[in-house]
C-alpha cells in the first residue's frame, strides 16, 4: 500500500469539491481517475492488470448506474452529449475524438498483435521448498538446522568476518555480477536474456525473507537442482558447486546480505505441516 498515492487520490477528489460549477460528469470522471490512479500505482506490489481491469470494470458499471439512476443526472449527461455532437464550439474537439478513437483502437490491436510470445500462465512456485539436506562436494549440509558457519564471526571476530565478506565480494564480481547486476537488482548485462530473470536481491521478497541455508542451496544447486514445481521455466542459474568451494559459496551469501543491508530470515521452530523457508 502506497500511502502517498492514496492521499494524493483523496486530495484530488477533495479538490474537486472546490472547483466552481462542478457537474456530475466531472465527479464521475474524478472518481474513476482517482480509483485508477490508486489501483495502478497505489498498491505495492502492483496488482496484475487483469485484476485492475476487473475492478475498474465494476466501478465503471457502478458509475454508469449512478448517473442513470437519477433522471435529472441522466438528462444532463444526454444533453451534454448532444451538445458535444452538435454545437459549433465543440466541432474541433468532436473531430479530434472521432479521429482519435479509431486510432486508439487500432493502436491497441497493433500492440496485441505485435506482442511477442509469452510463456503460458501457470502457478509456478517462485520459492520452492528446499530439501532437508543437500550434498556438496561429498559433504552433507543440513539446510534445516545448519546456519552459515561464518555468520557467527560477525559478532565474535569482525575482522575475520570482513575478510569473508571481502572474499564473497570477489566471488560475486567474478561470477554473479553478469546476471544479478552491479547493485544486485537482478539487472546484469545478461539478465534480459533469461526467463525467469535473475533474482533481485534488493527486493524485500527475495533474500530478505529467506534463510541463508536456502540461499546456499540455490547457489550450490542452481537451476538444474530446482524441484519440479518450479517448472515449466527452469532457471538458467548454473550449479555453482561445480565451480566454487563450499567456503566461497557461504562467503558470497554473506556478501549478498552485507551489500543489500538485508538480514537473513530468523530461524523458527518448525512444526505441523511445512516450515518457512
Amino acid at each position: 500500500m502506497n500511502i502517498l498515492i492514496l492521499l494524493a487520490a483523496c486530495a484530488g477528489l477533495l479538490a474537486l469539491r472546490f472547483v466552481p460549477k462542478m457537474n456530475i460528469l466531472g465527479w464521475l470522471v474524478g472518481w474513476w481517475a482517482a480509483t485508477f490512479v490508486f489501483l495502478r500505482w497505489g498498491i505495492n506490489p502492483p496488482l496484475p492488470t487483469s485484476i485492475q481491469g476487473m475492478f475498474l470494470a465494476i466501478l465503471t458499471l457502478s458509475l454508469l448506474a449512478y448517473i442513470s439512476a437519477n433522471s435529472a443526472h441522466f438528462r444532463f449527461a444526454l444533453d451534454r452529449a448532444v451538445a458535444f455532437a452538435t454545437e459549433k464550439k465543440y466541432t474541433v474537439a468532436l473531430l479530434v475524438t472521432l479521429i482519435l478513437l479509431p486510432c486508439l483502437v487500432a493502436l491497441r490491436v497493433y500492440f496485441d498483435v505485435t506482442e511477442g510470445p509469452a510463456p503460458p500462465l501457470s502457478s509456478r512456485t517462485i520459492h520452492p521448498p528446499p530439501p532437508v539436506s543437500i550434498e556438496v562436494a561429498g559433504r552433507t549440509i543440513d539446510l534445516v538446522n545448519d546456519d552459515n558457519p561464518y555468520r557467527a564471526l560477525e559478532t565474535e571476530d569482525p575482522a575475520a568476518f570482513a575478510e569473508h565478506v571481502a572474499n564473497g565480494r570477489r566471488v560475486y564480481y567474478e561470477n554473479c555480477v553478469y546476471c544479478h547486476g552491479d547493485d544486485m537488482a537482478g539487472d546484469g548485462l545478461f539478465a534480459h536474456g533469461y526467463d525467469p530473470i535473475p533474482a533481485n536481491f534488493q527486493d524485500a521478497t527475495t533474500i530478505a525473507m529467506l534463510q541463508e541455508g536456502y540461499i546456499f542451496w540455490r547457489i550450490a544447486k542452481g537451476g538444474p537442482g530446482l524441484p519440479s514445481e518450479s517448472t515449466p521455466w527452469l532457471s538458467a542459474m548454473p550449479a555453482w558447486e561445480n565451480f566454487l568451494t563450499e567456503e566461497e559459496m557461504w562467503d558470497v551469501t554473506l556478501f549478498l546480505y552485507d551489500f543489500t543491508g538485508h538480514r537473513p530470515r530468523a530461524r523458527e521452530d518448525h512444526g505441523g505441516g511445512g516450515d518457512g523457508h
Binding site: P128, P129, E229, H270, G272, G273, G274, G276, H277
Partner: peptide, 15 residues
C-alpha cells in the same frame, strides 16, 4: 500443498 506454506485447507506436505 507442497510449498511449505502453512494455513492451507489441508496440511502442507512439504516436509
Amino acid at each position: 500443498t507442497v510449498s511449505g506454506d502453512t494455513g492451507g485447507r489441508f496440511p502442507d506436505l512439504a516436509n
